[in-house]
């Protein structure tokens, strides 16, 4: 009897809360979430297999080399990069870390602006120009990011994206030493963006980096510190494949948008 009462109580309570689900609620309060789903009647659909096998078709002729670089990066990360990042985080106050990130991010807005212009994205070009202007002046050489607070979010555009917008195919997938996943098109883009940054030489940083390799080192450590990805975090023997697919699709998304 008590059980029935509990069930009744549950039913009442649940009925009051559940509007959309016309599920039959069991005696013990279970609402059977799978009940209303439309299933393939013979349960022999192979859509997961079909989708996933399709997703494994990424043009990767250099796979063997790429996999070795993947393992090299993994080791380098564990033995050099991440200990450096940890040390950097330990000795640097959080405020300074943000300042460093903002500073390099502000420099990165220069190629972003150029690429927005090349893609004839008017609004984005204006926003990025405004960002550069505000952050370099009000934000004290970019150490602070007042533009984001004013509603001008960072919108990264690189030359790989620009090439993609004009229909240049991705080319073979490449795992770059230290830099991680890329493809031929984006590697070219990376070189161009680097060239732009050093030609524009905003705040004289690019030139100073020539004489002071520690600036480049700081930039790399900062980059690693703000990149959340850790090798092994997918915890799968097939991390290489998953990373490759995620990278390819993320780039397609960035180009389409």
């Amino acid at each position: 009897m008590a059980k029935r009462f509990t069930a009744l109580l549950c039913t009442c309570l649940l009925a009051s809360g559940l509007v959309q689900a016309e599920h039959q609620v069991d005696d013990d309060g279970f609402t059977q979430p799978l009940q209303h789903l439309q299933f393939n009647p013979r349960l022999d659909q192979r859509e997961f297999e079909r989708s996933t096998l399709g997703a494994l078709n990424v043009y990767d002729p250099l796979e063997s080399w790429n996999r070795r670089v993947y393992h090299f990066n993994y080791r380098f990360d564990q033995w050099v990069f991440l200990p450096l990042v940890d040390g950097y985080r330990y000795v640097t106050p959080t405020l300074v870390q943000h300042g460093v990130s903002n500073f390099f991010s502000n420099l990165g807005d220069v190629p972003s602006l150029l690429n927005s212009l090349l893609q004839f994205k008017g609004k984005r070009s204006l926003q990025t120009s405004a960002r550069l202007l505000f952050n370099t002046t009000l934000g004290v050489a970019g150490l602070w990011d007042p533009a984001s607070r004013m509603g001008l979010p960072k919108q990264k555009e690189d030359f790989g994206q620009t090439l993609g917008v004009y229909g240049v195919p991705a080319g073979p997938y490449l795992m770059l030493p230290l830099l991680g996943p890329a493809n031929l098109r984006d590697t070219g883009g990376l070189v161009v963006d680097f060239g732009v940054e050093s030609q524009v030489n905003l705040l004289n940083v690019a030139e100073a980096s020539g004489n002071h390799p520690e600036i480049t080192a700081l930039k790399m450590v900062d980059q690693r510190a703000i990149t959340d990805f850790r090798y092994g975090q997918l915890n799968s023997p097939f991390e290489y494949e998953k990373l490759r697919y995620a990278y390819s699709e993320a780039r397609k998304l960035q180009i389409a948008e």
């Binding site: 299933f39 349960l43 859509e47």
Partner: peptide
């Protein structure tokens, strides 16, 4: 059983992932 659901929008040319990514692209 969850991968046995009948999903609208999947056909010979569109796989499930393409469907999802298409939605994401249009959303952004």
């Amino acid at each position: 059983r969850l991968v046995q659901t009948r999903v609208e929008g999947i056909d010979d040319t569109t796989t499930f992932y393409e469907l999802m990514l298409g939605k994401l692209t249009r959303y952004f």
